[in-house]
Each structure stands twice: as C-alpha cells, then as structure tokens.
C-alpha cells in the first residue's frame, strides 16, 4: 500500500498506518511527512486541556457530535500518560466516545505521551498534520489530564479550551501562572456540582487582573457535558474566538510561530542524532565520557570541541 497516496484518497487504514509510522519514528515517517505537508494547513485545530477527571473526553464527544451535525468532518487525537517505569499505557479516552466510532466522518486516535512532559506526545503535531492532509475540517487535540504547567497545547492548537471543575482549590489557584494563562475559552464542567458559581467568580477576577489581555476576553461557560448542557454556547465561544483570531492576524501569527517551531524541532532532533551517531561511530563518545568522569575535562569544553569539529 502506498500510504501517502491512499491517505490522500481517504483510506482510513492508510491514515492509521501513517500515524503509527510517525509515532514510531520509522525511516518512512519523514518521507510521509514531506509528501503530506503540501496538503496541510486547512484544518482548524482545537486544543482541549484541563485536570484529570474534568470531563475532557466527554466534552470532546459532545462537541464533536455538534460539529458533525453542522456537516463538518472531525479528527480526534486523545493523549493519555505513558508509564515512566514500564513504557506501557492505558489509553482510555475512547470509552467516552464510543458513539462516534461508527461515524465515518470521525477518526479517533489515542496516543501515549511516551516520555513527553508537556501534556502532549512529541509526535502529536505530526499526527495532526496527517489528519489535516486526510481532509478533516476540525481536529480536536485532547491533552493528558494536566496539573499546572503542561502548556504545550498552545503551540499545537489554533484555539485552546481549558476545562475546569468546581472544588479544586481556593482563589489563590486562580492567580497562579500556568494553564490558566493559556485558555482562549474556559469551560466550567460539572456545573451542577457545588462551587461552580464561585469558580466562575474567581475566574472572572483572574481575568479582570490580567494586564496582558488583548481585545479578546476569554469567555467562561458553565457546562454539564454528560447532559449536553452548555454545548451550543461552548461551540459559539469557540467559533467567536476563531473568528477573532482570523480577523486580527493572530491566527497567521500563531501559525507562523508554529512553522518556526516545527522547523526548529526537526533541526534540533536531526542535528542531535547526527552528532550523537558520529560520536558513537568514532568511539569518541566513550572517550569523552571517561575524561569527563575523571574530571580531566568538562561537558561544556567537550561540546565546544565537538561543535567546532563537526559543524564547520
């Protein structure tokens, strides 16, 4: 099977195989990405992040259904944590999305973080591109359940939605740096639980104090995802934000920044592995390590040497 050709024709197995190649970083993957790249840049990428158990998967399911009713095709990338000890993972986000499995306009892929700590996996951005080239109109990226500082999603998404739930802490939490700074749209899920209104007040207070705020004030919507309440309003908020960033040049700026990051990521990883391989092949790796261990030299001096040597 020619993966690229079949993927572009709409073959779902080809899309699936492409993402596997990307995740496993096979030799084929870079070739696939090169060929898919010209076909990307059309999808709207929505990031969904928030703490574990906030209802991100349930909300993704409901939002995806709403977009399907508008006739849009949907890709979903759902990320769960990989064990740092065994490398294994339980990817359980599909449990909340079973109703979407048989809809041909939806493609769901679960990914493990595989060592990445920013709430995504290293390969999420490329998996998004594969779905984009496949022709999906909207791609949801659901992060792992995050704590306070896993903010990589902003680099991957056009619009970032932060999902919060009542009862997670007092108002000092609301003025801390981190995930609360990245929300373009806020959703307070499980709004039938105690403390939802208090959380809305605290979030508003946080936004009132935001000195960096542009013309866009992130809306805060109360939702009960399991009962489909507040979904229409949430979609409206997402659309409003997309319209805002499209009309103000922010989307172009974000995508330019993303292109730069993509290039730098590839550059760093390829130069890194090129130099590492050379060091191993020539036996210099062990030599340097021994010298550093014996305190005859230091890592900084070694790296200066290596760079002078190899990057002429």
């Amino acid at each position: 099977m020619d993966i690229v050709e079949e993927l572009l024709k709409g073959n779902r197995l080809a899309l699936s195989r492409a993402i596997t190649a990307i995740e496993n970083e096979t030799d084929e993957a870079m070739d696939i990405m090169k060929k898919l790249y010209p076909h990307t840049g059309h999808a709207f990428v929505l990031g969904i992040t928030g703490p574990p158990g906030a209802g991100k998967s349930t909300l993704t399911d409901k939002l995806a259904r709403a977009y399907r009713e508008q006739g849009k095709t949907v890709g979903i990338i759902a990320i769960d944590p990989t064990s740092p000890f065994t490398g294994g993972a339980i990817l359980g986000d599909r449990i909340r999305m079973n109703g979407l499995t048989m809809d041909e306009g939806v493609f769901i892929r679960s990914m493990g973080t595989r060592g990445s700590l920013g709430g995504l996996s290293h390969k999420t951005a490329d998996a998004v591109k594969a779905m984009d080239a496949f022709g999906k109109d909207i791609i949801f990226v659901e992060t792992v359940g995050v704590g306070q500082s896993e903010v990589d999603i902003v680099k991957a998404a056009d619009t970032t939605m932060v999902v919060l739930i009542p009862g997670m802490g007092d108002d000092i939490q609301a003025i801390k740096a981190g995930i609360l700074e990245i929300g373009d749209v806020f959703t307070i899920n499980k709004a039938d639980h105690d403390g939802a209104d208090k959380l809305v007040r605290e979030m508003n207070m946080m936004l009132d104090l935001d000195g960096l705020m542009t013309d866009w004030r992130p809306p805060i919507q109360k939702v009960i995802a399991s009962q489909n309440e507040g979904i229409t309003e949430t979609i409206e908020n997402i659309e409003k934000h997309f319209k805002y960033i499209s009309e103000n040049g922010i989307l172009t700026k974000r995508r330019t920044e993303r292109s730069k990051n993509e290039m730098l990521d590839v550059l760093h990883s390829r130069i890194g592995s090129y130099i590492t391989n050379k060091l191993v092949e020539t036996g210099k790796m062990d030599e340097y390590v021994e010298k550093i261990k014996a305190r005859e030299t230091d890592p900084y001096t070694v790296v200066s040497h290596v760079m002078k040597d190899m990057l002429k």
Binding site: S83, T86, G87, G88, L91
Partner: peptide
C-alpha cells in the same frame, strides 16, 4: 493493567 505493566500501549474501549 497487566499488559500495561508489560510495556504495551493498551487501548480500552469499555
């Protein structure tokens, strides 16, 4: 859980 501990990526659908 056992497969996870063996280092596999386990997709569970309920």
């Amino acid at each position: 859980r056992a497969l996870r501990d063996a280092g596999f990526e386990v997709i569970y659908t309920g």
